[in-house]
């Protein structure tokens, strides 16, 4: 705003008003405060933070955005107020690490709570919850064991039967990256081409919309993240209960590498002014108390192996998760995007 001042007197009232508001909002920082840049919406994050706020008396400030927080952090450089970064997928988490925006944390608590394949070997980031990308099939129109592997979706017998959101969505890109890791780029591309040829309609909507399409008979098979199933069941809108009731959740590849899993995760900002307190928060989020909230509130699988999935989620039964180091998914994401462009998913 100072720049305006130099150039023109008549702008003064505007400058003053804006400056005033800015001043009020960026009031002096108190000692017990943590600043979070989050890719997860604040209303989903707050329930997880309540316990920490009560226990430590810390005030927590959040900016939520889905794109560009990396660039904001880069532009802020050493002046950045951010202490903690939270993401909802591995690719973005790894990008913060690649750009040198995280600082490594070696906390025995975090190491004990989070299994090795769900954290960065150098402690740059830690996974907090697992999000399982499952196949949803119509209860009525697809038999119990007809789909067993992700690879089955490319079988021409399912022509015109599959619905998905766009391939370039971060969840699908990660899924395809897991196929690249399993079979190599050429085979993964062949799979993608076959799957796209089976689509009932052009890719659209989000995961929930695919379940809706199954309930409407537009298609029989969809790819979705497991927790949407429970969110639909609990939604205020009774129509969504029907969508959930029309589908059955299938964990894929149980006989071989296991079902693809993505993570939401956390990292400590390199220029955090409150590193000690920030690490306390990271440890808290990996603790039993917070991890069971991840399970209860968002129906995600806790990253902490000592914490059970929520009662609702348990009805899906035990499943075998792909043990691929999660960082590999992030590394292969650009390759997956190129395949997506080539096959037009």
């Amino acid at each position: 705003m100072r720049m305006f001042e130099n150039c023109k007197e008549r702008l003064n009232p505007i400058v003053l008003t804006a400056g005033l508001i800015a001043g009020v909002l960026s009031a002096p920082v108190q000692s017990k405060e943590l600043n979070i840049y989050s890719h997860r919406q604040a209303f989903l994050l707050n329930p997880l933070l309540e316990g920490f706020k009560k226990q430590t008396g810390t005030k927590i400030n959040i900016v939520f955005a889905s794109k560009g927080l990396i660039q904001r952090l880069i532009a802020e450089g050493p002046r950045s107020p951010a202490d903690i970064i939270l993401t909802v997928d591995i690719a973005r988490l790894q990008q913060y690490a690649n750009k040198g925006l995280f600082t490594s944390v070696s906390s025995p608590t975090l190491k004990a709570n989070i299994p090795a394949h769900l954290r960065n070997p150098n402690g740059l980031w830690y996974g907090l919850s697992k999000r399982v990308r499952v196949v949803a099939v119509s209860k009525d129109r697809v038999g119990k064991d007809e789909i067993k592997r992700l690879e089955d979706l490319a079988d021409p017998r399912w022509k015109g039967k599959i619905c998905t959101r766009k391939g370039s969505h971060v969840y699908n890109r990660a899924l395809l990256a897991s196929l690249v890791a399993a079979h190599g780029e050429a085979t993964a591309e062949k799979w993608a081409r076959g799957m796209v040829a089976n689509l009932a309609r052009k890719p659209q909507g989000n995961d929930r919309a695919q379940a809706k399409a199954i309930s409407q008979g537009i298609c029989d098979i969809a790819i979705m993240n497991h927790y949407y199933y429970f969110q639909m069941k609990k939604n205020k809108n009774p129509a969504q209960h029907k969508w959930a009731e029309s589908i059955r959740i299938v964990f894929t590849n149980q006989g071989d590498r296991g079902n693809h899993v993505n993570i939401s995760g956390i990292g400590l900002a390199k220029h955090s002014k409150n590193k000690k307190l920030a690490i306390t928060l990271m440890e808290y989020l990996s603790s039993k108390q917070a991890q069971s909230l991840y399970a209860e509130v968002n129906y995600e699988y806790p990253a902490n192996a000592a914490v059970d999935a929520s009662r609702e989620v348990k009805i899906l039964g035990e499943f075998r998760a792909d043990q691929l180091p999660i960082a590999t998914i992030a590394k292969l994401a650009p390759t997956a995007q190129r395949i997506i462009d080539r096959v037009g998913w």
Partner: peptide
């Protein structure tokens, strides 16, 4: 101005 003046302020939004 060690903390910067623009990023994180409403002034930047207006700009």
């Amino acid at each position: 101005a060690s903390n910067g003046i623009l990023i994180g302020s409403v002034g930047l939004l207006i700009l």
